[in-house]
Design a protein around this nucleic acid. Structure first.
Lengths: 211, 211
DNA sequence: ACCTGAACACCGTTCAAGT
DNA sequence: ACCTGAACACCGTTCAAGT
Protein backbone atom coordinates (compact mmCIF):
# COMPACT_ATOMS: atom_id res chain seq x y z
CA UNK A 1 0.00 0.00 0.00
CA UNK A 2 1.26 3.49 -0.73
CA UNK A 3 -0.24 5.05 2.37
CA UNK A 4 -0.61 2.99 5.53
CA UNK A 5 -3.26 4.05 8.05
CA UNK A 6 -0.60 4.28 10.75
CA UNK A 7 2.66 5.97 9.63
CA UNK A 8 5.52 3.47 9.48
CA UNK A 9 8.26 6.00 9.96
CA UNK A 10 9.18 8.46 12.67
CA UNK A 11 12.34 10.42 13.36
CA UNK A 12 12.95 8.42 16.47
CA UNK A 13 12.58 5.02 14.80
CA UNK A 14 14.80 6.11 11.91
CA UNK A 15 17.55 7.23 14.30
CA UNK A 16 17.35 4.03 16.33
CA UNK A 17 17.61 1.74 13.31
CA UNK A 18 20.38 3.90 11.81
CA UNK A 19 22.43 3.57 14.98
CA UNK A 20 21.83 -0.16 14.97
CA UNK A 21 23.20 -0.44 11.44
CA UNK A 22 26.23 1.68 12.33
CA UNK A 23 26.96 -0.48 15.37
CA UNK A 24 26.63 -3.65 13.32
CA UNK A 25 28.05 -2.70 9.91
CA UNK A 26 30.16 0.37 10.61
CA UNK A 27 29.78 3.95 9.47
CA UNK A 28 30.39 3.03 5.84
CA UNK A 29 27.81 0.28 6.11
CA UNK A 30 24.99 2.77 6.53
CA UNK A 31 23.24 3.75 3.32
CA UNK A 32 19.88 5.40 2.95
CA UNK A 33 18.65 2.49 0.85
CA UNK A 34 19.72 -0.11 3.42
CA UNK A 35 18.25 1.96 6.23
CA UNK A 36 14.97 2.26 4.34
CA UNK A 37 14.98 -1.47 3.67
CA UNK A 38 15.31 -2.35 7.35
CA UNK A 39 12.46 0.04 8.08
CA UNK A 40 10.26 -1.69 5.51
CA UNK A 41 10.21 1.27 3.18
CA UNK A 42 11.92 2.77 0.09
CA UNK A 43 14.76 5.26 0.33
CA UNK A 44 12.87 8.40 -0.78
CA UNK A 45 10.38 7.94 2.06
CA UNK A 46 13.09 8.80 4.57
CA UNK A 47 13.29 12.33 3.24
CA UNK A 48 9.86 13.12 4.62
CA UNK A 49 11.32 12.78 8.13
CA UNK A 50 14.99 13.57 7.65
CA UNK A 51 16.44 16.47 5.68
CA UNK A 52 19.75 14.81 4.83
CA UNK A 53 21.95 11.86 5.73
CA UNK A 54 24.51 14.15 7.32
CA UNK A 55 21.88 15.71 9.58
CA UNK A 56 20.58 12.28 10.51
CA UNK A 57 24.10 11.35 11.62
CA UNK A 58 24.32 14.52 13.69
CA UNK A 59 21.02 13.69 15.37
CA UNK A 60 22.19 10.16 16.13
CA UNK A 61 25.46 11.58 17.48
CA UNK A 62 23.68 14.05 19.74
CA UNK A 63 21.54 11.27 21.12
CA UNK A 64 24.70 9.50 22.23
CA UNK A 65 26.35 12.58 23.66
CA UNK A 66 23.29 13.45 25.71
CA UNK A 67 24.02 10.38 27.82
CA UNK A 68 27.29 11.86 29.05
CA UNK A 69 27.08 12.65 32.74
CA UNK A 70 28.45 16.09 33.67
CA UNK A 71 27.55 15.97 37.35
CA UNK A 72 31.02 14.86 38.43
CA UNK A 73 32.12 18.39 39.34
CA UNK A 74 29.35 19.02 41.81
CA UNK A 75 31.48 17.92 44.73
CA UNK A 76 33.91 20.75 44.03
CA UNK A 77 36.97 18.51 43.63
CA UNK A 78 38.38 19.28 40.18
CA UNK A 79 40.45 16.10 39.98
CA UNK A 80 37.49 13.89 40.76
CA UNK A 81 35.35 15.93 38.35
CA UNK A 82 37.80 15.55 35.48
CA UNK A 83 38.06 11.81 35.96
CA UNK A 84 34.30 11.31 36.31
CA UNK A 85 33.44 13.39 33.24
CA UNK A 86 36.10 11.80 31.07
CA UNK A 87 35.02 8.34 32.18
CA UNK A 88 31.38 9.04 31.42
CA UNK A 89 32.27 10.55 28.04
CA UNK A 90 34.36 7.54 27.10
CA UNK A 91 31.71 5.07 28.27
CA UNK A 92 29.08 6.73 26.08
CA UNK A 93 31.32 6.67 22.99
CA UNK A 94 32.71 3.18 23.61
CA UNK A 95 29.19 1.77 23.37
CA UNK A 96 29.04 3.00 19.77
CA UNK A 97 32.65 3.21 18.69
CA UNK A 98 31.84 2.99 14.97
CA UNK A 99 30.32 6.45 14.99
CA UNK A 100 33.26 8.11 16.75
CA UNK A 101 35.11 9.14 13.55
CA UNK A 102 32.01 11.12 12.63
CA UNK A 103 31.82 12.65 16.11
CA UNK A 104 35.42 13.74 15.96
CA UNK A 105 34.66 15.85 12.94
CA UNK A 106 33.94 19.37 14.13
CA UNK A 107 33.18 18.79 17.84
CA UNK A 108 33.39 22.51 18.51
CA UNK A 109 30.16 23.17 16.64
CA UNK A 110 28.19 20.51 18.41
CA UNK A 111 25.95 21.72 21.22
CA UNK A 112 26.58 18.75 23.48
CA UNK A 113 30.37 18.92 23.07
CA UNK A 114 30.30 22.61 23.86
CA UNK A 115 28.34 21.99 27.03
CA UNK A 116 30.96 19.46 28.05
CA UNK A 117 33.80 21.88 27.29
CA UNK A 118 32.01 24.73 29.05
CA UNK A 119 31.43 22.69 32.19
CA UNK A 120 35.05 21.56 32.36
CA UNK A 121 36.41 25.01 31.60
CA UNK A 122 34.25 26.66 34.25
CA UNK A 123 35.08 24.12 36.92
CA UNK A 124 38.81 24.36 36.24
CA UNK A 125 38.83 28.15 36.39
CA UNK A 126 36.85 27.97 39.63
CA UNK A 127 39.52 25.61 40.96
CA UNK A 128 42.20 28.22 40.33
CA UNK A 129 43.50 27.23 36.91
CA UNK A 130 44.27 30.08 34.49
CA UNK A 131 41.84 30.29 31.58
CA UNK A 132 44.37 29.11 29.03
CA UNK A 133 45.31 26.11 31.13
CA UNK A 134 41.64 25.29 31.56
CA UNK A 135 41.21 25.28 27.79
CA UNK A 136 44.25 23.09 27.27
CA UNK A 137 43.23 20.62 29.97
CA UNK A 138 39.75 20.26 28.50
CA UNK A 139 41.27 19.82 25.05
CA UNK A 140 43.66 17.17 26.36
CA UNK A 141 40.83 15.18 27.86
CA UNK A 142 38.92 15.40 24.60
CA UNK A 143 41.98 14.10 22.74
CA UNK A 144 42.22 11.20 25.14
CA UNK A 145 38.54 10.27 25.03
CA UNK A 146 38.29 10.41 21.26
CA UNK A 147 41.62 8.72 20.71
CA UNK A 148 40.79 5.94 23.14
CA UNK A 149 37.39 5.17 21.60
CA UNK A 150 38.35 5.66 17.98
CA UNK A 151 41.74 4.07 17.69
CA UNK A 152 40.45 0.87 19.19
CA UNK A 153 44.07 -0.05 19.61
CA UNK A 154 43.77 -3.49 21.05
CA UNK A 155 40.81 -4.87 19.12
CA UNK A 156 42.66 -4.43 15.84
CA UNK A 157 45.35 -6.97 16.63
CA UNK A 158 45.44 -10.17 14.67
CA UNK A 159 44.60 -13.31 16.63
CA UNK A 160 46.95 -15.35 14.49
CA UNK A 161 49.70 -16.19 16.92
CA UNK A 162 52.29 -16.59 14.18
CA UNK A 163 51.68 -13.07 12.92
CA UNK A 164 53.84 -11.08 15.32
CA UNK A 165 56.66 -12.83 17.19
CA UNK A 166 59.17 -13.32 14.39
CA UNK A 167 58.96 -9.80 13.15
CA UNK A 168 58.49 -7.93 16.42
CA UNK A 169 60.19 -9.58 19.29
CA UNK A 170 58.55 -7.40 21.94
CA UNK A 171 55.07 -8.29 20.73
CA UNK A 172 55.25 -12.06 21.16
CA UNK A 173 52.08 -12.01 23.26
CA UNK A 174 50.24 -9.74 20.89
CA UNK A 175 47.99 -12.44 19.47
CA UNK A 176 46.34 -12.75 22.87
CA UNK A 177 45.12 -9.18 22.80
CA UNK A 178 41.76 -9.53 21.03
CA UNK A 179 40.51 -11.78 23.81
CA UNK A 180 41.10 -9.11 26.38
CA UNK A 181 40.74 -6.14 24.08
CA UNK A 182 37.93 -4.45 25.92
CA UNK A 183 39.57 -4.78 29.31
CA UNK A 184 42.94 -3.62 28.05
CA UNK A 185 41.42 -0.60 26.32
CA UNK A 186 39.62 0.40 29.49
CA UNK A 187 42.68 -0.14 31.69
CA UNK A 188 44.88 1.83 29.30
CA UNK A 189 42.40 4.68 29.36
CA UNK A 190 42.27 4.61 33.15
CA UNK A 191 46.06 4.61 33.37
CA UNK A 192 46.31 7.55 30.98
CA UNK A 193 43.60 9.41 32.85
CA UNK A 194 45.05 8.98 36.34
CA UNK A 195 48.64 9.65 35.24
CA UNK A 196 47.46 12.79 33.44
CA UNK A 197 45.55 14.08 36.47
CA UNK A 198 48.46 13.29 38.81
CA UNK A 199 50.78 15.16 36.46
CA UNK A 200 48.42 18.12 36.45
CA UNK A 201 48.43 18.27 40.24
CA UNK A 202 52.24 18.38 40.18
CA UNK A 203 52.08 21.25 37.70
CA UNK A 204 49.48 23.09 39.76
CA UNK A 205 51.59 22.93 42.91
CA UNK A 206 54.77 23.85 41.07
CA UNK A 207 53.06 26.83 39.40
CA UNK A 208 51.42 27.87 42.64
CA UNK A 209 47.92 28.03 41.16
CA UNK A 210 45.52 28.54 44.07
CA UNK A 211 42.43 26.47 44.71
CA UNK B 1 46.48 9.42 -27.70
CA UNK B 2 45.68 6.08 -26.14
CA UNK B 3 49.27 5.12 -25.47
CA UNK B 4 51.84 7.87 -24.80
CA UNK B 5 55.49 7.10 -25.51
CA UNK B 6 56.36 7.95 -21.90
CA UNK B 7 53.94 6.53 -19.30
CA UNK B 8 51.94 9.29 -17.63
CA UNK B 9 51.25 7.38 -14.45
CA UNK B 10 53.36 5.84 -11.76
CA UNK B 11 52.52 4.57 -8.30
CA UNK B 12 54.56 7.34 -6.77
CA UNK B 13 52.88 10.12 -8.73
CA UNK B 14 49.42 8.70 -8.02
CA UNK B 15 50.13 8.61 -4.28
CA UNK B 16 51.50 12.14 -4.24
CA UNK B 17 48.53 13.63 -6.07
CA UNK B 18 46.10 11.58 -3.96
CA UNK B 19 47.62 12.96 -0.76
CA UNK B 20 47.41 16.47 -2.19
CA UNK B 21 43.69 16.05 -2.85
CA UNK B 22 43.13 14.66 0.65
CA UNK B 23 44.98 17.58 2.21
CA UNK B 24 43.01 20.08 0.15
CA UNK B 25 39.54 18.52 -0.09
CA UNK B 26 39.43 16.05 2.78
CA UNK B 27 39.17 12.29 2.80
CA UNK B 28 35.68 12.34 1.30
CA UNK B 29 36.90 14.69 -1.39
CA UNK B 30 39.08 12.01 -2.94
CA UNK B 31 37.45 10.03 -5.74
CA UNK B 32 39.15 7.88 -8.32
CA UNK B 33 37.64 9.98 -11.10
CA UNK B 34 38.88 13.26 -9.59
CA UNK B 35 42.29 11.75 -8.94
CA UNK B 36 42.47 10.54 -12.52
CA UNK B 37 41.39 13.97 -13.77
CA UNK B 38 44.20 15.75 -11.92
CA UNK B 39 46.63 13.23 -13.35
CA UNK B 40 45.42 13.95 -16.88
CA UNK B 41 43.90 10.52 -17.32
CA UNK B 42 40.60 8.58 -17.02
CA UNK B 43 39.63 6.65 -13.90
CA UNK B 44 40.14 3.10 -15.24
CA UNK B 45 43.77 3.89 -16.06
CA UNK B 46 44.56 4.07 -12.36
CA UNK B 47 43.84 0.37 -11.97
CA UNK B 48 46.90 -0.52 -13.94
CA UNK B 49 49.01 0.88 -11.10
CA UNK B 50 46.78 0.51 -8.07
CA UNK B 51 44.77 -2.54 -7.11
CA UNK B 52 42.07 -0.70 -5.16
CA UNK B 53 41.26 2.67 -3.62
CA UNK B 54 41.56 1.22 -0.13
CA UNK B 55 45.05 -0.09 -0.83
CA UNK B 56 46.04 3.26 -2.34
CA UNK B 57 44.99 4.91 0.93
CA UNK B 58 47.04 2.39 2.91
CA UNK B 59 50.08 3.15 0.76
CA UNK B 60 49.62 6.89 1.23
CA UNK B 61 49.21 6.31 4.97
CA UNK B 62 52.38 4.25 5.20
CA UNK B 63 54.29 6.97 3.39
CA UNK B 64 53.30 9.38 6.14
CA UNK B 65 54.05 6.99 8.99
CA UNK B 66 57.50 6.25 7.64
CA UNK B 67 58.47 9.80 8.53
CA UNK B 68 57.96 9.15 12.24
CA UNK B 69 61.28 9.27 14.06
CA UNK B 70 61.82 6.41 16.50
CA UNK B 71 65.36 7.30 17.51
CA UNK B 72 64.26 9.11 20.68
CA UNK B 73 64.94 6.11 22.90
CA UNK B 74 68.56 5.73 21.94
CA UNK B 75 69.71 7.80 24.89
CA UNK B 76 68.23 5.24 27.28
CA UNK B 77 65.97 7.71 29.09
CA UNK B 78 62.45 6.31 28.78
CA UNK B 79 60.74 9.60 29.63
CA UNK B 80 62.66 11.50 26.99
CA UNK B 81 62.07 8.67 24.53
CA UNK B 82 58.31 8.66 25.06
CA UNK B 83 58.06 12.41 24.60
CA UNK B 84 60.26 12.45 21.51
CA UNK B 85 58.44 9.56 19.81
CA UNK B 86 55.00 10.93 20.57
CA UNK B 87 56.01 14.38 19.35
CA UNK B 88 57.39 13.01 16.12
CA UNK B 89 54.31 10.86 15.58
CA UNK B 90 52.01 13.80 16.13
CA UNK B 91 54.03 16.08 13.87
CA UNK B 92 53.82 13.59 11.01
CA UNK B 93 50.05 13.20 11.37
CA UNK B 94 49.35 16.89 11.97
CA UNK B 95 50.81 17.70 8.55
CA UNK B 96 48.04 15.60 6.96
CA UNK B 97 45.26 15.64 9.52
CA UNK B 98 42.56 14.82 6.96
CA UNK B 99 43.85 11.30 6.56
CA UNK B 100 43.98 10.56 10.29
CA UNK B 101 40.48 9.03 10.53
CA UNK B 102 41.61 6.48 7.98
CA UNK B 103 44.85 5.85 9.90
CA UNK B 104 42.95 5.26 13.10
CA UNK B 105 41.16 2.37 11.50
CA UNK B 106 43.02 -0.80 12.34
CA UNK B 107 46.43 0.56 13.41
CA UNK B 108 47.38 -2.81 14.84
CA UNK B 109 47.62 -4.34 11.37
CA UNK B 110 49.78 -1.63 9.92
CA UNK B 111 53.48 -2.42 9.73
CA UNK B 112 54.63 1.07 10.64
CA UNK B 113 52.31 1.33 13.65
CA UNK B 114 53.51 -2.03 14.88
CA UNK B 115 57.12 -0.92 14.62
CA UNK B 116 56.24 2.14 16.70
CA UNK B 117 54.43 0.02 19.30
CA UNK B 118 57.23 -2.53 19.36
CA UNK B 119 59.89 0.10 19.90
CA UNK B 120 57.98 1.74 22.75
CA UNK B 121 57.09 -1.57 24.35
CA UNK B 122 60.68 -2.80 24.25
CA UNK B 123 62.13 0.41 25.61
CA UNK B 124 59.62 0.54 28.47
CA UNK B 125 60.26 -3.06 29.49
CA UNK B 126 64.00 -2.37 29.37
CA UNK B 127 63.37 0.58 31.68
CA UNK B 128 61.78 -1.67 34.26
CA UNK B 129 58.09 -1.42 33.43
CA UNK B 130 56.06 -4.64 33.59
CA UNK B 131 54.93 -5.89 30.19
CA UNK B 132 51.29 -5.03 30.78
CA UNK B 133 52.15 -1.51 31.85
CA UNK B 134 54.34 -1.12 28.79
CA UNK B 135 51.41 -2.09 26.58
CA UNK B 136 49.06 0.31 28.33
CA UNK B 137 51.53 3.19 28.20
CA UNK B 138 52.09 2.70 24.47
CA UNK B 139 48.33 2.49 23.94
CA UNK B 140 47.79 5.66 25.94
CA UNK B 141 50.28 7.56 23.81
CA UNK B 142 48.58 6.28 20.67
CA UNK B 143 45.23 7.49 22.00
CA UNK B 144 46.71 10.90 22.67
CA UNK B 145 48.44 11.25 19.30
CA UNK B 146 45.41 10.15 17.29
CA UNK B 147 42.96 12.12 19.39
CA UNK B 148 45.06 15.27 19.19
CA UNK B 149 45.47 15.14 15.41
CA UNK B 150 41.99 13.93 14.56
CA UNK B 151 39.75 15.85 16.88
CA UNK B 152 41.27 19.13 15.76
CA UNK B 153 39.56 20.59 18.79
CA UNK B 154 40.43 24.22 18.37
CA UNK B 155 40.18 24.66 14.62
CA UNK B 156 36.52 23.68 14.69
CA UNK B 157 35.40 26.68 16.71
CA UNK B 158 33.27 29.27 15.03
CA UNK B 159 34.93 32.65 14.52
CA UNK B 160 31.60 34.42 14.94
CA UNK B 161 32.05 36.18 18.26
CA UNK B 162 28.33 36.22 18.96
CA UNK B 163 28.11 32.46 18.68
CA UNK B 164 29.23 31.43 22.15
CA UNK B 165 29.04 33.97 24.99
CA UNK B 166 25.30 34.11 25.60
CA UNK B 167 24.87 30.35 25.69
CA UNK B 168 28.11 29.31 27.35
CA UNK B 169 29.40 31.84 29.79
CA UNK B 170 32.78 30.21 30.23
CA UNK B 171 33.49 30.29 26.52
CA UNK B 172 33.24 34.02 25.94
CA UNK B 173 36.66 34.08 24.33
CA UNK B 174 35.99 31.03 22.20
CA UNK B 175 35.61 32.97 18.95
CA UNK B 176 39.30 33.89 19.14
CA UNK B 177 40.37 30.28 18.96
CA UNK B 178 40.60 29.70 15.21
CA UNK B 179 43.26 32.38 14.93
CA UNK B 180 45.52 30.55 17.31
CA UNK B 181 44.19 27.06 16.63
CA UNK B 182 47.46 25.51 15.59
CA UNK B 183 49.38 26.89 18.53
CA UNK B 184 46.70 25.92 21.02
CA UNK B 185 46.48 22.41 19.65
CA UNK B 186 50.23 21.99 19.94
CA UNK B 187 50.37 23.46 23.44
CA UNK B 188 47.49 21.29 24.60
CA UNK B 189 49.25 18.22 23.26
CA UNK B 190 52.48 19.21 24.99
CA UNK B 191 50.65 19.78 28.26
CA UNK B 192 48.93 16.42 28.04
CA UNK B 193 52.19 14.72 27.14
CA UNK B 194 54.28 16.19 29.96
CA UNK B 195 51.56 15.77 32.58
CA UNK B 196 51.12 12.15 31.49
CA UNK B 197 54.84 11.37 31.69
CA UNK B 198 55.15 13.13 35.06
CA UNK B 199 52.22 11.09 36.32
CA UNK B 200 53.88 7.91 35.08
CA UNK B 201 57.06 8.71 36.98
CA UNK B 202 55.00 9.11 40.16
CA UNK B 203 53.42 5.72 39.52
CA UNK B 204 56.77 4.11 38.80
CA UNK B 205 58.27 5.34 42.05
CA UNK B 206 55.16 4.43 44.05
CA UNK B 207 55.08 0.93 42.54
CA UNK B 208 58.83 0.50 43.01
CA UNK B 209 59.44 -0.52 39.37
CA UNK B 210 63.21 -0.62 38.90
CA UNK B 211 65.10 1.08 36.12
C1' DA C 1 -0.28 13.31 4.82
C1' DC C 2 2.63 9.72 3.52
C1' DC C 3 4.92 6.64 0.48
C1' DT C 4 6.53 5.33 -4.39
C1' DG C 5 8.97 4.76 -9.16
C1' DA C 6 11.75 7.00 -12.11
C1' DA C 7 15.45 9.86 -12.71
C1' DC C 8 19.90 12.63 -11.98
C1' DA C 9 24.56 13.02 -10.93
C1' DC C 10 27.64 10.79 -8.66
C1' DC C 11 30.64 6.48 -6.76
C1' DG C 12 34.43 2.11 -7.22
C1' DT C 13 35.57 -1.25 -10.37
C1' DT C 14 35.78 -4.46 -14.58
C1' DC C 15 36.73 -5.54 -19.20
C1' DA C 16 36.91 -5.87 -24.03
C1' DA C 17 38.83 -2.88 -27.38
C1' DG C 18 42.10 0.34 -29.30
C1' DT C 19 47.20 1.87 -30.36
C1' DA D 1 52.46 -2.13 -22.27
C1' DC D 2 49.33 1.43 -21.37
C1' DC D 3 45.17 3.97 -21.71
C1' DT D 4 40.05 4.26 -23.08
C1' DG D 5 34.68 3.97 -23.47
C1' DA D 6 31.05 1.49 -22.04
C1' DA D 7 28.99 -0.89 -18.54
C1' DC D 8 27.64 -2.72 -13.76
C1' DA D 9 26.12 -2.18 -9.26
C1' DC D 10 26.09 0.97 -6.14
C1' DC D 11 25.48 5.98 -3.78
C1' DG D 12 22.45 10.57 -1.90
C1' DT D 13 18.74 13.16 -3.31
C1' DT D 14 14.66 15.21 -5.99
C1' DC D 15 10.12 15.21 -7.69
C1' DA D 16 5.93 14.36 -9.96
C1' DA D 17 2.57 10.90 -9.27
C1' DG D 18 -0.28 7.77 -6.67
C1' DT D 19 -3.67 6.75 -2.54
Amino acid sequence: MARPSVPILSGERIRAVALGIIDRDGLEGLSMRKLAGELGVRAPSLYGHVTTKDELLHDVANGILEQVDLSGFEGGDWQHGLVACARSYRAALARHSNIVPFLAYGPARRESSLRWMDTLHGALVAAGWPRRHATMIAASLMYLVFGATMTSFSSGFSDDETFYPDRFRHLDKAHLLPKVAEELDRDSFELALSAFVDGLELLRVASNFQV
